[in-house]
Design a protein around this nucleic acid. Structure first.
Lengths: 201, 201
DNA sequence: AAAAATTCTTATCTTTTGTTAACGTTTTGA
DNA sequence: TCAAAACGTTAACAAAAGATAAGAATTTTT
């Protein structure tokens, strides 16, 4: 995908939250970068401050951390979704997890420095401040739902829900990552799948 | 606590995120209300849109929903913490959970209407927009950590963590609510506690 | 093309959790 | 104050999940 199209995707994404006129977009666009992240390469690493927020324009990434020598996957981002070690990005403290490309990715990034600069911009600051609020609110709701699913649902119910609403996650992502995402082991997910197969058969 | 002191608590809370001068505070204060919420009374209910965000000035509340005829507790708010069915508040859709006073509470509230009005205010709008962003970011980080705890920790590890960092939660909140909060049954939590007792004895 | 690594399933065994019920204690409310 | 409700622990059993290992199928790498 060429740079201009990629930037356009970023504009589209911003505009799902706040409308921009062309002048405002001209103020924002120069601060963006379009990057390639090859499969297995890291966008963020534990111990390092995450200095970018990004929009996945093409590809998919996986969030994970290493515990007892094992990788535990907590999240994914796909096309037209933001990615960032957001806590690290916001707090300016070293992050705890990797963000790694599952496929070759194209990512439009905005640096923390540019983000702060733009919050203070007379022309577009207020709108970006609102954008910042709305994306935080958006992801807050996502996390709220996810916490609720852990408290109120069994692993099997969570998996069923993911089949209904997860889009192409189940096709694109290796199953043992999905298991982590659901808070269970890969072996356990395999058993759940078998239980479901038997019931529906 | 008298009204003025309660309002002062609200100002203090806002000022942990953005500083306000007296003029700005005079624009904000008239939009606030100080309410009493008696024990067992609901601040929010499923099926109703949550029209207020509130600051707990005194007391504590519990978030729960009813599933299969049973109450499942997902969260709490204590003194100097915000409370709201935030998803419902933001999306203007009916909420799914109760927010109920665990003790007699004093709560400073700000309505959705007032919040939108203040976002558009020339004098203080930009600052409140930033406040809205920062609290969303703050709670986003809280939820992110909580999701992470479900994915990477066992119930026993979550309980140990809560003992270390949970402040007076364990003293103030009935244990079966804590169990829900940790994503397990009350019986299971009782067993975990016994295991820990034996080990440390 | 062959070797290595990854992925998923299945089996076995152990541990943990869920479920239900009983019991004593404490708290609540009429 | 007295009965009812709520709370925490324990027990017994069933269900589910974790740990480990083996094996087949697929994908990746060399």
């Amino acid at each position: 995908m060429d740079t201009l199209t990629a930037l356009g995707k970023f504009r589209e994404h911003v505009e799902t939250y706040v409308k921009l006129n062309d002048v405002e977009w001209q103020a924002l666009a120069p601060l963006l970068e379009v990057n390639i992240l090859k499969k297995k390469k890291n966008f963020a690493e534990p111990g390092k401050v995450c200095n970018q927020i990004g929009l996945v324009v093409k590809g998919a990434v996986r969030y994970f951390l290493v515990k007892n020598g094992e990788e535990i996957t907590g999240y994914f981002s796909f096309e037209n979704e933001l990615l960032s070690s957001y806590k690290s990005f916001l707090t300016r403290q070293p992050g705890e997890n990797y963000i790694q490309a599952l496929e070759d990715c194209q990512i439009v990034t905005l640096s923390y420095k540019a983000m702060q600069q733009i919050y203070g911009d007379v022309l577009i600051g207020a709108k970006m401040e609102r954008f910042g609020r709305l994306i935080a609110e958006h992801y807050l709701i996502c996390y709220e739902d996810r916490v609720s699913s852990f408290v109120t649902q069994t692993p099997e119910e969570r998996y069923n829900k993911l089949m209904e609403t997860g889009g192409d996650i189940l096709q694109r992502i290796p199953q043992h990552y999905i298991a982590n995402f659901l808070g269970i082991t890969p072996v356990s997910l395999s058993r759940i799948r078998r239980r479901i197969m038997k019931i529906s058969a």
